[in-house]
Every structure is written in structure tokens, then in C-alpha cells.
Design a protein around this nucleic acid. Structure first.
Lengths: 221, 221
DNA sequence: TTTAAAAATATCCAAATGGAGTATTATTTT
DNA sequence: AAAATAATACTCCATTTGGATATTTTTAAA
């Protein structure tokens, strides 16, 4: 039985997706979430054994958007497969979602059987499900280094960290304490601490260890 | 009528491909070539009007291989679409072919109708045909390769950490606190702390952040 | 130019961390 | 059998951290 979680702010969308999957009795929708914050909270409350195998995630959501959620969750829960399921197919969203850790990118226009089939394939062979038109766009990203390089710079901002916050995160990773970072950046330790807490909020974590985990696994430092 | 050219050194392969396309009467195989050199020669001998719209190209060929041929031909004949049609799906070949100018990458195992359908789609909408498993590999190329780098050093226990210490370090990287680690490993938080300090001593550091830095960069976790 | 956002500063508090000991019990190794 | 190593557990203590506010100053945008 393949455990699925659905994350979408529209109740109707969630129902439609669940219905599409219900035709195949190998799928079990273990939980649904209305946004990234809700999703991360539910994941935290579940033990590893109860985590979904595959998460279908919309991108446009309140509180925490899909890209940011995937960025955090794919670091925190590396065993879970994150598949974008959205109506958007613009290059920037695709690129950011993939860099954030999505293993697949499906368009909602795909038929139920096609989606079910692709998810089965993801489960069986590990091949990420990708809508054909998305696959071509990804190919173009690889083909046009210039365009990719431009996107690459944006990638650093999956989490929308400010320059100062990136600097602090970098110094944090060096094992420096607040006061040491303050001395190096010529700001008060109190300010350093404030920056750290802002960073944690943007990464959706609550400790230095988890922030560093995400920083390392997402290449932020 | 969509003009197709087939480039493959095996006569039997060429015939099989031509047969697969023959079911659809919109396709017309205008010429075949046994290798890159042959293909380029035939292209030179033809006027633009007689050039194929789509070229199906094998990669492993004598004289001039497929990647190199695509590189040259896609520059000389920018209007022509080059689609790799091969049995190989290793990352390097895919990457090189795309960078050379291939707009699609199909595996020979695809069925005739699927190939025909994808080529029709290329003709109609310009979307490059990509086999699903290839699409996933391309996606991975775009994704962060962070984890892949330090694989070999992973086995070596250069810091002489005990099994328990490695376990604790692993849990530390998950952002768990002493008491949480203690709960999971069924030992006292005090003992966890003792292990942590031992780990720090073996890694020659004095903080969680630095221990994690070493753990991540040396592939300990 | 007014507004809004980011950056910098600070204080209070509870909890977590790291350091340095001490000590008991298994398990290996010699 | 003796010695070394690993794992376990505890205490005391100073420091650090995360969280919640709050104020001021730059900086950037509407």
C-alpha cells in the first residue's frame, strides 16, 4: 500500500486528486494538508513509520508556499518523495521546485490513470513522474546554460534569505557563536541572534542543527 | 508530410525504426545514414527543401559518433530537430547529447505508436520527445548533487567513532536534543551528552555546529 | 515623498548546551 | 586474569540558545 499525502489549499482540488487516486486500490491517502505550515506540522506529529511515501504538493499556497515547503521537508524527510502537482508550468516555478528537492512535476491536467500510473512507476522503479511538456522545459534548462545560470542565482533564494541572513548562516556553519559572529560582522550579538531566529523562521525549523542540515543539503553554504 | 532521417550503423535497427514509423502515413523516411560522416555528407548533398524535419540519431556509431554529429549538424541546420534514439541511458551520454543540441531523447524500447506519437507532438507543438526514464535523469542533473560527492570516504572511519557515537551523531544531525535522542535510544540524556562530548573530542571540535560541519563535509552522515 | 521593508539594537526568561568531574557495568583485548 | 575500551549515569556550573517583544535606524519601493 502506497501512502500518499495531498497538500493543496483548495478543498475541491484535494478531493479531485484523492478521487483520481481512489480508482487504484494500491494508494492510500494518509493525510491532507491545506498549506505548507499545516503539512510540516502534521509531518512532525507523525512517526517515520506513518509518514507518506509520496507527497503531492501544490505550489501556490498561503502561509508557506510549495517550493519552500519542499525545500525544508525534503531535507528533513529524505525518504519521502515530493511530487509537484499544479496547474503552473512556467520555467521559474519548475526550476525552483526541482532545486528545492521535488522528484517529479505533474500538471493537474493529466488524467487520473496517467497520474496513478506515474506514481506507481515512481514507487516501483524510483523514476520521478514528469509531465511531457515539463520534461521538455527541463531539457531546455540543461540545453541553455545561460538561462540556467541566471536561474541558478535565484536558486539561492528558495528560502528568501536576505544577504545578511545568508552571511550569518555561513558564519553559523563555521561553528561561531553569537558573540563571535557579532565581532566579525561588527554588529551586536543580540542582532546576530535576531537574524538567526529570522533564518529559522524562513527555513521553517527551530534549531541551529536543523538549519545547518538544510543549509548543507541544499547547498546554501 | 513529416520528413524523417534515420542514422544508425545497424541496418536492422534502421529497418525496425522505419517500420515503426510506417504505420503512420504522415511520416516519410527521406533517407538513412550508417554513421555521422555519412549523414553529414548526405545533408550537404541535399537542398534545404529536401532536408529532413526530424533526424533520429543513434549515439554509438563509427567514424563520427552521434553526439558529435548532433553538435555539428544542429549548428549547420538549425531548422532540423535532432532526436536521440538509442538504447543507452547513462547520464553522461544524455547530458552530452542535450548540450550538443538534441531536442529529444528516446529509448529504443519505446513502442512504435509511442515514438510516432511523440514525433507528431514535436512536429505540432515543438515539444521535444523524451522517454520518461530519461526525463527523470535530466531532472536529477538539474538537482543538487550535494550528496553524491563524498561517497567513497563514507566507509572510512577516520575519526574512530564507535557505533554508538556514529548513531548519536546521526541523530544529532536530525536536530534532536539530548533528551529526544535519549528517548529514541533508550538511554539517559546524560549519557547522550557524554557521548556528544566524546564525539567532539574525537572530531577535535567543541560544538554541535562544528561537529555537524565535519560530519556533512566528510560524509559521516 | 510618504510608506513599507530590512537591518540593527536591546532585555527578559526558560531551556539546552558544553565542560569537567566521578563511578558502575559490560565487553574486548591482551 | 588483568587491562583497556565502551557504554552507562550522575552532579555542579557557567555559557549559549531560542523565543517573545520592543525600539530605532537605514534602505528601498510605491
Amino acid at each position: 500500500m502506497i501512502r500518499i499525502a495531498i497538500v493543496d489549499d483548495k478543498a475541491n482540488n484535494r478531493r479531485v486528486i484523492a478521487d483520481k487516486l481512489s480508482t487504484n486500490h494500491f494508494f492510500s491517502v494518509v493525510f491532507q494538508a491545506v498549506d505548507g505550515e499545516d503539512f510540516l506540522a502534521q509531518m512532525r506529529s507523525l512517526s517515520d513509520d506513518d509518514h507518506p511515501h509520496i507527497v503531492l504538493m501544490d505550489l501556490e499556497m498561503p502561509n508557506i508556499d510549495g517550493v519552500s515547503t519542499i525545500g525544508t521537508a525534503s531535507s528533513l524527510y529524505p525518504a519521502v518523495k515530493f511530487v509537484v502537482l499544479t496547474i503552473f508550468d512556467d520555467d521559474d516555478k519548475i526550476f525552483r521546485a526541482i532545486r528545492a528537492g521535488a522528484c517529479g512535476y505533474l500538471l493537474k491536467e493529466e488524467s487520473g490513470p496517467v497520474i496513478a500510473d506515474m506514481l506507481m512507476n515512481l514507487w516501483e522503479s524510483g523514476a520521478g513522474p514528469i509531465s511531457p511538456s515539463i520534461a521538455y522545459k527541463i531539457l531546455q534548462m540543461v540545453q541553455q546554460p545561460a538561462a540556467v545560470v541566471n536561474e541558478k542565482e535565484k536558486q539561492e533564494n528558495i528560502f528568501q534569505l536576505s544577504d545578511r541572513e545568508k552571511e550569518i548562516l555561513q558564519l553559523l556553519s563555521q561553528g561561531l557563536e553569537y558573540k563571535e559572529i557579532g565581532a566579525r560582522t561588527f554588529i551586536s550579538p543580540n542582532t546576530v541572534k535576531k537574524h538567526c531566529i529570522s533564518i529559522y523562521q524562513k527555513l521553517h525549523v527551530n534549531s541551529k542543527a536543523l538549519a545547518l542540515k538544510i543549509a548543507y543539503t541544499k547547498g546554501l553554504i
